[in-house]
Nucleic acid binder design. Structure first.
Lengths: 193, 193
DNA sequence: CCATAAATAGACAAATCTGTCTATTTATGA
DNA sequence: TCATAAATAGACAGATTTGTCTATTTATGG
């Protein structure tokens, strides 16, 4: 058991270095603008190691999307759990994304970005991104149902509105490089719940 | 005067063929996935002609964004003008984008797409895209001010909300390849005006 | 200690990319 | 008709791309 863990860890070190570098470069520069050679150089690993773990560059992109999906959900779940009031949990979504976009220097949503770059050329990329957005919708829906909002809108409508405004405000943040729209959206939703 | 027009027309023929092809390919395949050679081949013009009118590929991208901006505004202005009721003008924005996204096969917003591909690498691209989104915000604001809505939200808030929901719903359309979110957003806005 | 597996460095192929350049043909306006 | 400008075809350079392959070194577990 122990040696298996060590082997796995050993292998994971390289995979993690690759994925860490790919994540950083794919998001900051774009997938198409990032070459395999840059990834292996900045990850400080051998080219053969990369192609041992990922058959093609597209496989690396898919793995990047999957890992980003997992990490995104963990973070947002934690952020929401730190808030007690069920209505405030909804508003915490906006605060969380303000923080994230500041850290990400207003590069926008990594999934939309990946979709815009490679969603049309590879069906696996689109499918993976659809999973992330469906996950987001489902998560928001649950929060809305438990929020006890004032039913100015139906549960479904409010959930849709929050999902849509988050998407739109993050897109706007990537254009204007500021969290203005995320903050506006939060205030508006606050009025409606 | 006449010969000037003919000369201009003559030149415009080539430029238009280039821009028509670039528009189609940049949107459907992405800017990075489209080579100059494919543009000149499908536009059926010579490579030297392209580089006579556009110094670099980036210049072609900027010109594509500018022309798309102009055409976008003309279309949306016409769509809104065909509606009499000032509140319905706001809703017409959503109907128009449903139509557009169907025509575009749910590829999302061309400006966000261009921003995701080249916004970080070239400041001119970002600047041009900021102009388009500011234009959109201003246009919506005017419609809101003249709409006579019921002031559940302030003018500014409603304008922001419509702008943000349009952006978000178009992004969602590019992921799920259907106009669901655009239609939901329309219904929700209808409840609020 | 030894056999196996993993990681490394880097050359290499084949394709593709942007941009330049030359030589030729076409079109235009006076 | 004639000079000028524009468009064409396509070769070419030089860099870059993804992916393969070989040879070597390192690390691991038994």
């Amino acid at each position: 058991m122990a040696y298996l863990c060590v082997m796995k860890q050993r292998g994971q070190v390289v995979v993690d270095k690759i994925l860490d570098t790919a994540e950083r470069l794919f998001y900051a520069q774009g997938y198409s603008n990032t070459g395999i050679n840059q990834v292996i150089e900045e990850a400080d690993i051998a080219k053969a190691s990369l192609y041992k773990h990922f058959d093609t560059k597209t496989d690396l992109l898919v793995a990047y999307i999957q890992r980003t999906h997992e990490r995104w959900f963990n973070r947002i779940e934690n952020a929401v759990n730190e808030v007690a009031d069920p209505k405030d949990k909804l508003l915490a979504l906006f605060d969380h994304h303000v923080e994230r976009q500041e850290i990400r220097q207003f590069g926008g949503c990594p999934f939309i970005k990946a979709n815009d770059e490679a969603g049309t050329s590879d069906p696996r990329v689109l499918a993976e991104i659809q999973l992330t957005k469906q996950h987001s919708k489902d998560f928001i829906k649950t929060l809305v149902v438990n929020s006890g909002h004032k039913k100015l809108l139906t549960d479904q409508e409010l959930a849709e509105l929050i999902f849509i405004t988050l998407e739109g405000a993050i897109a706007a943040a990537s254009v204007f490089k500021q969290p203005t729209e995320l903050q506006s959206a939060k205030q508006i939703i606050q009025k409606l719940i």
